[in-house]
């Protein structure tokens, strides 16, 4: 593999473009899942909620306005090929410049300090995760994460022998506590394993997986389906007014963990799951 130079200016532009396209347009796989949900939802009020959200998505795209006023905090996941040499400046600064430009016409939803709480007025900084991978490409994944659903997300360090029952109970309890707050139907990202810091990121990565793709690990694919059924049996329904579609999907990502522990994180996505990926 030959070493490749990539200007961080390209990354800056890509971030800006991903934000623009995601703010006004929801992912196709999500809209397809919503249309299917509209067909099978048993509650009349629930169906009205789903139709309203689909109409809203259409209207926002036509008018080129944000689907939701909360265009979130920008979360960038980068897979950087080890044969890429990034040039023309600092990567973090370039990403944040892209965020500032991308959010120029969007709501500014970021405060600089969690306790002092002064708005940064430009929606920067982004939350940035990097993985070094083989190859000479950079894969950039953006989530414009709304915090209504983020606020209802939870994590717990269970002891080693908690087993799958502890996982199930914790996921279900999280959905019950979230109820209408997280703008159901939700997408449920579950992280299993790793460490305290790692399990949250696994759950976030689970939310980045397109809908309609079960886990490649058979035991996790089965657990995803089982959890989805249990969640939909809760009856919370679209927007929490009762119904048969409380979640569109459960995605589980796992990693090895220590002999002492079973870390679990549940990250929720709302009715505006804005995400997009580009390969540079």
């Amino acid at each position: 593999m030959t070493l490749r130079q990539l200007s961080v200016r390209h990354i800056e532009t890509a971030v800006q473009e991903l934000i623009k396209e995601s703010a006004y347009k929801l992912p196709a796989d999500y809209l397809a899942a919503m249309r299917a949900a509209e067909e099978r939802e048993a509650s009349k009020t629930g169906r009205i909620m789903l139709t309203t959200l689909l109409d809203n998505a259409d209207y926002a795209e036509v008018e080129q306005i944000p689907t939701c006023q909360d265009t979130g905090m920008a979360i960038l996941m980068l897979e950087i090929g080890q044969d890429v040499h990034l040039v023309d400046g600092n990567l973090t600064d370039a990403i944040n410049a892209g965020v500032r430009a991308g959010y120029a016409d969007l709501r500014k939803s970021v405060v600089g300090d969690p306790l002092e709480r002064t708005n940064t007025a430009d929606n920067a900084p982004a939350i940035i995760h990097t993985d070094i991978v083989p190859g000479n490409k950079v894969t950039l994944t953006l989530a414009m994460k709304g915090f209504g659903a983020e606020l209802m997300s939870r994590m717990q360090m269970f002891p080693a022998n908690g087993g799958v029952e502890a996982v199930k109970a914790f996921v279900i309890e999280t959905i019950e506590l979230a109820g209408p707050n997280a703008c159901p139907p939700v997408i449920v990202g579950v992280g299993l394993g790793s460490s305290f810091d790692g399990v949250g990121l696994l759950a976030k990565k689970a939310l980045m997986r397109p809908l309609g793709q079960p886990s490649p690990k058979p035991h996790l694919a089965q657990l995803e389906q089982e959890l989805l059924n249990s969640i939909n049996d809760l009856g919370i329904g679209p927007q929490g007014f009762g119904g048969t579609v409380t979640a569109l999907a459960v995605h589980i990502e796992s990693f090895a963990t220590h002999i002492a522990a079973l870390p679990v994180a549940v990250n929720l996505n709302c009715s505006a799951p804005r995400r997009a990926t580009v390969v540079l």
Partner: peptide
């Protein structure tokens, strides 16, 4: 949108007020 505390629900009764929800995520419409 979303749940209110028992204290708020009690105060709605006490002061004769009402809590409505609008559709969360339907901001453009």
């Amino acid at each position: 949108k979303g749940y209110r505390s028992d204290r708020v629900k009690q105060a709605l009764i006490e002061h004769n007020a009402v809590y409505f929800a609008a559709v969360g995520g339907a901001a453009a419409l």
